[in-house]
Structures are given as structure tokens and as C-alpha cells.
Amino acid sequence: MEMAIFLVMGALSVGFSLVMILARKPVTSAMSLVAVMFCLAVLFALQSAHLIAILQILVYAGAIMVLFLFVIMLLNLREKEGEESHTKGYGQIFGGAIAFTILIVAVGSTSMSGSPAGLSSDRFGTTAEVGKILFTKYILPFEITSVLLLAALVGAVALVKLRMR
């Protein structure tokens, strides 16, 4: 059962990713990306990481992609601009091949044994467990990330102010 769901969702996410890259209309691409997020959320839920699954939908599908759509609509993009990029795609194919090779090597060289991130397996993925480990073992990366985001925010505001002057 789990295997079947995994296969269907995996195939769907790959399919929607392809649609996202190949679609002519930006809105179609954006909506396919939303669908990919959904498939990924189901895959997370299969791994009994319910919190991550929900956050995947809440943050990526619910918030970030809405902003994407907002920008697409604000610029009123109907068809993809720069049509010629479709015809000379050798560079993209080459780049994609290199990225794929790196990915294969990286996955191959990582050992996947042991419980992920040192979580106890029976309560793995619950909100309490994730919260506990986030505020103890991973507190430094967590805080650094928040500072990084704050810096990005301030930077964006500064850039806008600069242009307004």
C-alpha cells in the first residue's frame, strides 16, 4: 500500500515538475509547482513526518506560491517571454546532465543508515519531537537561519528605498 502510494506520488511529482519546466504559460508552471509541493507533502506524510508534510503545504503551497502567482499577475505575464530559449536548449541539457551527475554521486556517497537526524523512531515526526530537537540540538543553525532571513528582509527594503530616491 505504502509502496503504491509512493510510486504514484513520485511519478506525479516528476510529471508535474516536467510540466513546470516545459509549460509555455507562467501560471501553468506555477500551478504545476503547487502540485509538486502537494506530492512532496504526501511523501513526507508517508515517512510519518506529519509536521513537515503540513508545513510543506502551509509554507510552500499556501504562502510562497501565492506570492509567485501574485507577481505573475502583477506583471500580467501571459506567455513566457524570451521564446528563443526553447530552440537552443543544448546548454540547458548539458547543465541538467551535470547537475544530475552531481546528485547521483552525492546520494551514492551518503550513507542512509541509522535514524534520521538522531530522532527516536517511535515519536519521530511529531510536533513536540521536532520542536524539542529544533530548540536543543539544532538551536544554532535555527537561529542563524532566522538572522539570515531578517538580513534578507532588511536588504530587500533597503534596495526598494534606494530605487525610490
Partner: peptide, 26 residues
Amino acid sequence: DLDVGLLYVFAIGSLATYGVVIAGWS
């Protein structure tokens, strides 16, 4: 009875935006 029920409500609720946005755009 999800242990992340409250987050589920917000996650699903945030998807309602798509219907409206897509309607407006299309």
C-alpha cells in the same frame, strides 16, 4: 484526529486563495 490539526486547518485554508486568484487571472 490529527496531532497537527490546527496547522492542517491553516494549510488547507491557505489553499482557498488559489481558487480566487486563478479565477481572477483566467
